[in-house]
Design a protein around this nucleic acid. Sequence first.
DNA 1: AACCTTTTTTGATGTATATCAAAAAATAAG
DNA 2: CTTATTTTTTGATATACATCAAAAAAGGTT
Lengths: 191, 191
Amino acid sequence: MDTKITNFIQSIYMLPNDILEDVLGHFKYLEFPKNHLLLQQGKTCKHLWVMTKGAVKYFYTNEEGKEMNTWFSLDTQVIADTTSFVSQEPSEENIQLLEDSEMYSIEYSALQSLLQKHHSFALWYIKLIEQHYVAQIEDRIADLQFLNAKQRYQKLLNLYPEITNRISLGNISSYLNITQETLSRIRAGKF
Amino acid sequence: MDTKITNFIQSIYMLPNDILEDVLGHFKYLEFPKNHLLLQQGKTCKHLWVMTKGAVKYFYTNEEGKEMNTWFSLDTQVIADTTSFVSQEPSEENIQLLEDSEMYSIEYSALQSLLQKHHSFALWYIKLIEQHYVAQIEDRIADLQFLNAKQRYQKLLNLYPEITNRISLGNISSYLNITQETLSRIRAGKF
DNA sequence: AACCTTTTTTGATGTATATCAAAAAATAAG
DNA sequence: CTTATTTTTTGATATACATCAAAAAAGGTT
């Protein structure tokens, strides 16, 4: 079976071979084109995706119809609206591809039965949540609370040095919680 | 054994009786006075606490020596610096009691061996993380990103109507990411 | 290459919230 | 009850960033 997803799984927490086989059997390989909407605001997030190549943004549309980005993921990352996925209630945000992307998806119900079936898979999932949600998300809170616009931009550049070649300023500024004009001025060294 | 911690554990995810007994045996009951420092910046968070009564703040001290609150927990809540606890690396923040509090603590190493030992406890821990970290934390990001100072204050009041009787304005304003003066003006209806 | 569309930059002005200073009110201590 | 200490409020001014409008630059398409 495909090595990319196998490597990803085993990098989180090593599973015995027979259990790995069972888990892999529930992941489906998919390719999606740029702009494809993985999840729509108001729909329940029924899948967890492992992206092995590509880029996505998370955003929601506010009262005035303006798109506000809440998150980016580039290259190998877990993709899901965590709140909707764990509660199986409607999502408040959209997830959309910014590039042609490769994904492996697993359904919520399949994940649940694997968790019940295999103790080691439950331990795997604990590691996944710890690494992919908790750490990243707490960092984002600290950024929003303590860094100014310029510092947030520099930190993003540090994390994804090539981001400006892959994602438009409008999308980046929305994630940084500033206007496109302000980001342009930051880049021009005016602050 | 004590019913408060038992009720808390069983409210997350029901455990079989023999496993519940084993788990309870690893929780230690503790009472701490107001101002006690549960965790200090730079030290590794080696415990997870279940607070059954009391109030705590999470904060870090910035370059200028100013305390910046990142989180409050009142009454029944899980307390830990998640990032430090899951990685077992030094914490970047402090956790301090704002009232005399009752806690049940479990050590990191005891938790890890219970996770390895009992499949159902691993399922319990997954629910704990999902409910107590992910949902709350994602909500906080949305607040910081999309609400103004007044809206953040009103939302906090909504969540903890009695908070102004228990926690000082200075502590609340720091959590809301505004100055004490601004919070005072918001309360006076000046915005 | 010339045209159209999208993205990025620049300029002028406005607003939410910070900062600094000090007064008033509440709480604690003698 | 009185004094000392901490917390909260008020006022004047400053600043980071938003908004609105328009020009410039970059990409795509025929």
